[in-house]
Structure formats: C-alpha cells, structure tokens
Simulated scan of single mutants.
Amino acid sequence: MSVQLKPLYDKDQTCLFCEKIYQTKRLRSKFVRVKQVHSDFYTEYKDPDLNPLFYEVSVCPHCGFASSDTFSSNFPSGTTNVIAEQFKDWKMQDFGNERKVEDAIRALKLGILSAMLKREKHVVIGGLCLRLAWLFRLISSEEQEIRFLKKAQEHYAKSYEEVDYKDTQMTDMRLLYLIGELHRRIGNQSEAIQFFSRVIQHKHKATEPKIVEMAREQWYLIREKNDEEATI
C-alpha cells in the first residue's frame, strides 16, 4: 500500500547564528500550481494555502535568528554582538509547522530584521522586502504593501549602485527592470520611465528579451496613462 505524498515536508536547518539544528517546513514543488504572475514577479497560486513564499524564511526557535537560502554564512565584524543583543529576550517560538499568511508575515519580518543586523547584501534585503509586500498584497493591505515596495526599491537601488548583486541570480537587466517597476507601483512615474528606458536600450538586451518586452509594456502603460490624464 503506497503512502500518499503530502504537500509539506520537514527539512533540517542549521541556524547560521547559534548553529543549533531545528526543523522547518518546505513545500514540494509538484504541489505548486501557478495561477498568474504579476509585473513585479509576484506569483498568485491556484491554491492560496500552498504558497512556497510562506516557507521561504526559516526561523530558529532557539535564538530567533531568521534566514533564507539567499543569506551568506559570513557575519561581518561586530554583527554577532548586535544580533545577540537584539534577540536576548527571545522566548522560544516554533515556526516549523504549517503556516498561514500571518505566520509568513512574522517570519519575513524577522528575516528582514536579521538580514539588516547581519549587514546582508542590499539585493538580499530588497528581495525580502519585496516578498513581504507581496504577502500584504495577498491580504489586500495596500498601505503596508506600498511601504515595503518602497523599502524594496531603495535597497535594490543601493544594490545597483554598489553592484552587490554580482554572483547572485539577479541580473543587471532584471534589477534595472525591478527598480523601474517598483517606482511605477509607488507612483514615481518619471523615475520608472528612466529605468525602463535603460532596460530597453541595454547593450545586452538580446540576452533577456522577455525582460525587455516587460519594460516596454510598462513604459507604454505609463505613457498611455499620462496621455489620458492630459486630455481630462
């Protein structure tokens, strides 16, 4: 008699900070069914409860330090003391069970806090802020969504300036596009056009035609909106 495979499975995780081992949940990819992908790469799923984003950040129940697979194992000088001070009053909490959106929001907030205390790359912090904005979009909390879209845009802009996205999965063109799209979503239309134009005119645009097409589509959206407003 075959055992029915469940969507969630337990994964052993070693805390980057305290180095204790704990279990956290992960979602099997075969159960993930995509419904729609938004222009900032937010993904809607056919089953809202089977959302891999809920389990992207692991939270150590022993010390409270939270991390994702994008974190480096290196702790810059002085950061361990700062982290220890921040989490000194941590009461043991288990995030290793099935999560609802509220649990995922708490985990991501801990992930952002941990990343900032650890002085992670801006591209990593920006990614966490963007994912938190997506969770707020999921529950229609527009004010909080905009708040974290702004934070994501700021960190991505710093990442581009400092080129700290090198040796990650983020590409030059994808980062430029994301900065532009986040500007568009928070209402900075002129800045958005500047970044979309940089994607469209990029010297390596032939390598990522899908990103170029997305930038062109968003650029046209802004121009159409501006033309409509001008005729009112």
Rank of each mutant, 00 (worst) to 15 (best):
K100W: 12
F148N: 00
E98Y: 07
Q201I: 11
E154K: 01
S73C: 06
Q93C: 09
W90T: 00
V101I: 13
S141L: 07
V163Y: 15
R174S: 15
D103A: 05
S77K: 13
E191C: 05
L113M: 02
L135S: 03
R119M: 03
Q189N: 13
E181K: 09
K118C: 06
G78T: 13
I125Y: 00
Q169N: 14
A107T: 04
R184Y: 13
L178H: 06
D164K: 06
A152V: 07
I112H: 00
L178W: 10
E154I: 05
F148T: 00
I139Q: 10
I186Y: 14
A104I: 02
F87A: 00
D167L: 11
I125A: 03
Y160Q: 10
I200R: 15
F75Y: 15
I112R: 04
A104L: 02
G96V: 11
S77C: 08
G187T: 10
M92K: 15
I179S: 06
D164I: 03
E191R: 03
I193Q: 11
E98R: 08
E98S: 12
Q169A: 11
L135K: 00
F195W: 13
Q194K: 12
S140E: 14
E85L: 06
L110G: 00
L108R: 00
D94V: 12
M92I: 14
K203T: 09
N81P: 10
G127W: 00
K151C: 02
K100T: 14
R119K: 04
L182C: 12
K166S: 11
K88I: 10
K150C: 04
F136D: 09
E181I: 12
E85V: 03
N97I: 05
P76N: 01
R137Q: 12
L182Q: 07
F75N: 06
E154Y: 09
V199R: 07
K158C: 13
H155C: 05
Q194V: 15
H204F: 14
V199P: 13
R184M: 09
E102W: 08
Y165Q: 03
L110W: 05
R185W: 10
H204N: 15
Q189A: 14
S190W: 12
I179Q: 03
K91Y: 12
Q93M: 09
I200Q: 15
K118H: 10
Q86L: 01
R119F: 06
H202I: 04
R137V: 04
Y177T: 10
S159M: 04
L135P: 14
I179E: 02
K151Q: 11
E143D: 12
G126V: 06
F195T: 08
T79N: 01
G111A: 03
V199G: 08
I179N: 03
K205Q: 12
V199W: 07
Q189G: 05
F196G: 04
E143I: 13
L182W: 08
Y165P: 05
Q93E: 15
F196C: 04
K151F: 12
F196H: 04
N97F: 07
K88E: 14
R147V: 10
K166A: 13
L175K: 04
T79Y: 02
K100E: 13
L135Y: 08
E143M: 11
S141A: 13
Y156K: 02
L176G: 08
D164E: 15
L130A: 02
